Amino acid sequence: MQSENALVYVVDDDRRVREALAALLRASGIEVQTFNSGEEFLDTPHQNVVACLILDLRMPGMSGLEVQRLVRRDSQIPVIFITGRADVPSAVLAMKGGAVDFLTKPLDEDALMRAVDAALARAHVLRKAAEDTAALQALHQSLTPREQELLPLLASGRLNKQAAGILGITEYTVQVHRGHIMRKMQADSFATLVRQASKLQLEASSMTTFDA
């Protein structure tokens, strides 16, 4: 189980379902927070931890699909849908929206726990990716404005001479900046630097008409 330092949110308007799910998850060592409506869940500040959401499809007020749409807009919490009255169109919409699983009541405990394990594993991956991206962005922000201009040119395959012509600087200056960029980005090779630029989705300047 991916339950260490993890949290499962349970949103269901049926108190008995909430209590049963909370008891099952806590018995497996997972922290749980329960909510009786989508509105209550969305209005509650969420902890900055790895988490997933068990979400009832049909509830008074906001539906589970509406909650899923709003959650996707602001976060990447994996969702497991549960419902007492499944229908194909709703299941299709839920899965297209990125749901980890779509389970019908009465719930099979083993199937639910497998879904929770998969959802928390996905949450771990998403969190790690977000942390890596934030760290990479911080390295990029440590570059000077000129270095930030130069990086996408180099990563797109421009030679030092070409990049110098585009930016109106000397080739020697490009070489100096290139060394600084490699050091500040903590790139152990130029191939690594190219991958970093790709992850940052950096694009070369539109001033690409220089012909070496």
Score class of each variant (00 low, 15 high):
Leu107Ser: 04
Arg58Tyr: 15
Gln76Lys: 15
Gly98Phe: 11
Ala138Phe: 00
Pro45Thr: 07
Asp74Leu: 12
Val49Arg: 14
Gly168Arg: 01
Glu109Asn: 14
Ser206Pro: 07
Gly98Pro: 12
Phe35Asn: 04
Thr173Met: 03
Val11Cys: 00
Pro78Met: 12
Asn160Val: 07
Val176Tyr: 06
Glu149Ile: 02
Ala6Pro: 06
Asp12Ala: 04
Asp13Ile: 06
Phe35Tyr: 13
Glu39Ala: 15
Arg183Thr: 02
His124Lys: 11
Gly64Phe: 14
Lys184Thr: 07
Leu150Phe: 04
Met95Arg: 05
His124Tyr: 14
Arg183Tyr: 05
Ile77Gly: 06
Glu109Cys: 09
Arg15Tyr: 12
Val50Asn: 04
Ser90His: 09
Met1Trp: 14
Glu203Ala: 11
Asn36His: 05
Pro60Ile: 10
Leu153Cys: 08
Leu70Trp: 07
Asp43Gly: 00
Ala130Gly: 12
Pro152Phe: 02
Arg146Leu: 07
Ala91Met: 11
Leu7His: 00
Ala51Lys: 10
Leu112Ser: 08
Val174Ser: 07
Glu131Lys: 12
Asn5Lys: 14
Lys184Cys: 04
Cys52Val: 03
Met1Asp: 12
Ala130Cys: 07
Gln175Leu: 01
Ser90Ile: 03
Val92Arg: 10
Leu150Met: 04
Gly29Pro: 03
Gln76Arg: 15
